[in-house]
Amino acid sequence: MHTTDMSGNKKAEAVAEDPAKVAAFERRVANDEFIEPKDWMPEAYRRTLVRQMSQHAHSEIVGMLPEGNWISRAPSLRRKAILLAKVQDEAGHGLYLYSAAETLGTSRDEMTEALLSGKAKYSTIFNYPTLTWADIGAIGWLVDGAAIMNQVPLQRTSYGPYARAMVRICKEESFHQRQGYEIMMHLAAGTEAQQRMAQDALNRWWWPSLMMFGPPDDKSPNTEQSMRWRIKRDTNDELRQKFVDITVPQAEAIGLTVPDPALKWNEARGAYDFGDVDWEEFYAVVKGEGPVAKERMQARVKAWDDGAWVRDAARVHAEKRAAAKLAAE
């Protein structure tokens, strides 16, 4: 997921660009051609992509924290091995996306600095805490489920390196969702306390998951341009509806209740009607007021600072070895 633009919808300032080049670019994209790193592209396209891709990469990296919180307390060795593998995948996703974003001429350090200084955004969902083991089930099922819904269409996004990274990521996501649903399934079939735990996790993660698709279409002014450029292939509301329609029967099948009194099957639309998302809460979390936003950033900054001596030592060692090799030749 994490593909939603959350940086305030600033309109790009106009840069003087050769109209013939712009027209040729627009034609290629409209024909569903892929744009590759060395191809000419409008500055606004490049900037939008860097923002979207780095935001997506940051989300994968910060997304390791809520689940990492439970690795040492997983209820069995099987669950622990699975969770470790899943969190490792998320690190991989972050790395695929950072390296794809680097092909647009922004450095890894610039992106890291933007994240750690608080300048860059990441998905709001990761600023909620993981209070119980059932949260790990709910995250895999709902958060990775929403991520898949957002990411599948991006396998055909117009920027080649981004599309290729998405193909790789989508292949790996389906295990994430299934292991989460399996956790929920087992809890929902367990003791009364386990059932309550599963329902409580669904109650807390349902609405933040719907927020993952970003603001409603009428509050998302950049959607039109992003769709024209094939950086986005469906609107936020379309994807949100699809997610609700697919997920509600999955909850019912294991005896859990989606926490929305307005939820009702609409025969005429062939889709569920559902209640309004609390957008006040969404914008507050975007601004950094999520329940554990500060802890998340502290953890990233600490990891970066604690790793500094390793980065420096490896670099100096490599330089010394290279110099010695040169001298021996």
């Binding site: 593998a85 991989g92 790395l95 390296s99 890894r108 290729r164 990274a165 060692h317 490599a318 070895r321």
Partner: peptide, 23 residues
């Protein structure tokens, strides 16, 4: 398949292994 950052070639192979061949 993509790229990695690494201090030297040996580390690059190790990072490539972890990043691109988990399955």
């Amino acid at each position: 398949v993509g790229s990695v950052h690494a201090a030297d070639a040996k580390m690059a192979v190790e990072h490539a292994r972890d990043t691109y061949t988990r399955r």
